[in-house]
Write a protein that binds this DNA or RNA. Structure first.
Length: 478
RNA sequence: CGGGGUGUGGCGCAGACGGCUAGCGCGCUGCGUUUGGGACGCAGAGGUCGUCGGUUCAAGUCCGACCACCCCGACCA
């Protein structure tokens, strides 16, 4: 590393992001264009994300399974809109085993088709319903432009796929999982998101309705952090997923699918990160507390390390993920910067003075510099630290919410709208849904309709002047 | 795919008017001194200069083609 400091966010936001991801050792570029290697620290973060989500999926009655990565090309063409939506970004295997394949195989861009095929086989009766499955997998989409975590050719995600007997039940499932994502983002990732329905223009290829959670990044651009699709009977009809109901009548199932990806990591980087590096929410951080021992002479070393060991053991006992940085030959100052780059929520410094005073020096990652430092008594450190982690988690969410709310503006005319999305953040507007108008706005302002807000009452569409009872968010997006 | 840029030790760069053992900073290895906000000294290791071809007594340097990657636009979780 030639430069000790990161490019600042103000100077060049996307350069800041790239350097941060690399230097925090979350990921690195792979030999194949657009592909990334998720490094152990990044993967540990992903594992914590997975664990928190998986727990919620299980609690809502879902089970995990694994479907194959290779899908017969013909499957992709069975659902008309689905074909169109994915055709340009498919990677296709044409040769294997030393010869040309009878039928090419696509690397899954998503698994509706293969899972639908299997569901058709497994579902016979209303007694088989609902089917509530999820899989943790990798998928491939040949994107034009890629960014580490935000858009890569191959990425990791979970995709839930469910089948139900009724419209109402499937719709309820779609909304339930949107709620699960929202809850996860707020309570685990300290990431405020706005849940809502996508416009017809933006919905998933083949869905009846798509819902999303939208998050505001540190540069006020929007990032779609997760989606939940109500697929209606479109895929059931395309893949023949049928069941006999109580009246012995054959019915098509109602299906859903929903997913979040490693993009969540990119979102966390951009929501919480600062010019010192990553800032991770305690609930998901691979390392929650790092201890930096400080000593000069051997005589000090022994006493310091003894205290370090006691603190480490005490925190471990509390279930806190703690790491002792015992690397030799590095100054404490170097280590502080190093762990700040990696976003560890809390640092404990233990040196001769602390041994002498029976105290600990704490430094909060969410409050940089002197303001985030405090000196606390050794006695009761387990509770002090545990409480501090909760405080940090809460503070991070509150800060992110305050930032987001300060950058959303309600406007009622196109001039103000343009000013807001160009210079200030997100626009919240009354909107009469119209795909053509949406296209025009997108062309003229380079910003997208994110989703529909929760709205009461009615107003006048800022663009068409028509009366409407829906409000939406528009913003520049990743 | 259109526009722009870059390819030289692990990383960041210099060398470009052809010329002799290809440099510098960081990092890495060893030893010693250090250690409360990015330590220092000494000694080392590490490079077919993106690839192929051409010009020349001589190519990192000139010419051509190709490839890769990065940035900016149209598509997307």
């Amino acid at each position: 590393m030639e430069n000790l400091k990161l490019t600042s966010r103000e100077e060049n936001y996307s350069e800041w992001y790239n350097q941060l991801v690399l230097r925090a050792e979350l990921a690195d570029y792979a030999p194949v264009r657009g592909c990334m290697v998720v490094r152990p620290y990044g993967w540990a973060l992903w594992e914590n994300i997975q664990a928190a989500l998986d727990k919620r999926f299980k609690e809502t009655g879902h089970v995990n399974a694994a479907f194959p990565m290779l899908i017969p090309e013909s499957y992709m063409t069975k659902e008309a809109e689905h074909v169109e939506g994915f055709a340009p970004e498919l990677a296709v295997v044409t040769h294997a085993g030393g010869s040309k394949l009878e039928e090419p195989l696509v690397l899954r861009p998503t698994s509706e088709t293969i899972i639908g095929t299997m569901y058709a086989k497994w579902i016979q009766s209303y007694r088989d319903l609902p089917v509530l499955m999820n899989q943790w997998a990798n998928v491939v989409r040949w994107e034009m432009r890629t960014r580490l975590f935000l858009r890569t050719t191959e990425f990791y995600w979970q995709e839930g796929h469910t089948a139900h007997a009724t419209y109402e039940e499937a719709e309820a499932e779609t909304l339930q999982m949107l709620g699960v994502y929202t809850d996860f983002c707020h309570n685990e990732a300290a990431m405020p998101v706005l849940p809502g329905r996508k416009s017809e223009r933006e919905k998933f290829a083949g869905a009846l309705a798509t819902y999303s959670i939208e998050a505001m990044m540190g540069d006020t651009k929007a990032l779609q952090a997760g989606t939940s699709h109500f697929l209606g009977q479109n895929f059931a009809k395309a893949f023949d997923i049928k069941f006999l109901d109580q009246n012995n009548e054959l019915q098509y199932c109602w299906t859903t699918s929903w997913g979040v990806t490693t993009r969540l990591i990119g979102a966390m980087v951009m929501i919480h990160g600062d010019d010192q590096g990553l800032v991770l929410p305690p609930r998901l951080a691979p390392i929650q507390v790092v201890i930096v021992p400080i000593f000069r002479k051997d005589s000090e070393k022994e006493a310091v390390l003894e205290m370090v060991a006691k603190v480490q053991a005490g925190l471990k006992e509390q279930g806190i993920r703690v790491h002792v940085d015992d690397r030799e030959g590095l100054t404490p100052g170097f280590k502080y910067n190093d762990w700040e780059m990696k976003g560890v929520p809390l640092r404990i410094e233990i040196g001769p003075k602390d041994v002498e005073k029976n105290s600990l020096a704490l430094a909060r990652r969410d409050i940089p510099g002197r303001d985030g430092k405090s000196f606390v008594p050794y006695d009761g450190f387990q509770k002090t630290v545990a409480d501090m982690l909760v405080t940090i988690q809460d503070n991070m969410l509150a800060k992110a919410i305050a930032f987001r709310d300060a950058h959303i503006f309600e406007v009622d005319n196109y001039e103000d709208f343009k000013d807001v999305v160009e210079n200030k953040g997100w626009a919240k507007v009354w909107w009469y849904e119209d795909g053509e108008n949406e296209d025009k706005i997108r062309e003229e302002t380079k910003c997208k309709l994110l989703n529909f807000a929760e709205t009461e009452g009615e107003g006048i569409c800022f663009y068409s002047g028509r009366k409407t009872n829906t409000q939406v968010y528009f913003a520049k997006t990743y």
